[in-house]
Amino acid sequence: MSGVETKSNRESDQVSDDEIRLLIFKIMGVCFGADMEQIEEMVDFSQAQQEDWDIRNFTEAISFRDIEVEYKKPKVILIKDSDQDVGIVIDQPENIVNINIKSIRLLPPLLENHKTVDAIWAAVFLGEELALLVDFYRLQNSLPKIENQKLLENSEDAEVESN
């Protein structure tokens, strides 16, 4: 796993039966948490382009409405046990945390029944922050393929490459 060597990561490698280990990342200020058990590896976007992966864009499957989404430091997550090597583009993760499953909150029924994607399955409070839990297995089926170069526009990787 590259890029997310955090203190909490190193201190809590063990996950008990009543816990879930989450990769925490933000896209346009919205905080997400993904089950680490669904992740094979994570690499920089530029590195992922060199792999024979089916790279797909997270935010094209989960609509941010009329917000123009920009990735600051795009990373690609390779989904574990996928039939094909599916890489999902997210923004630079912030942390990895172990969460007791008792602290996971169901989404309100009104929202649960009217969301347009089922990949967001619950939420958890991390202090003052709320993380939406994302199931990458559910997500991968509804993700369109992306044009790699288009994604890099406005990202910091693009600036580095242009230099």
Binding site: F64, P108, K115, T116, F125, L132
Partner: peptide
């Protein structure tokens, strides 16, 4: 804000630990 929801849903709030 919860992405992937209709525009009439502004989002979710924490009400004493419940959402």
């Amino acid at each position: 804000f919860v992405p992937g929801t209709p525009k009439y849903i502004l989002g979710i709030v924490n009400v004493r630990g419940d959402i």
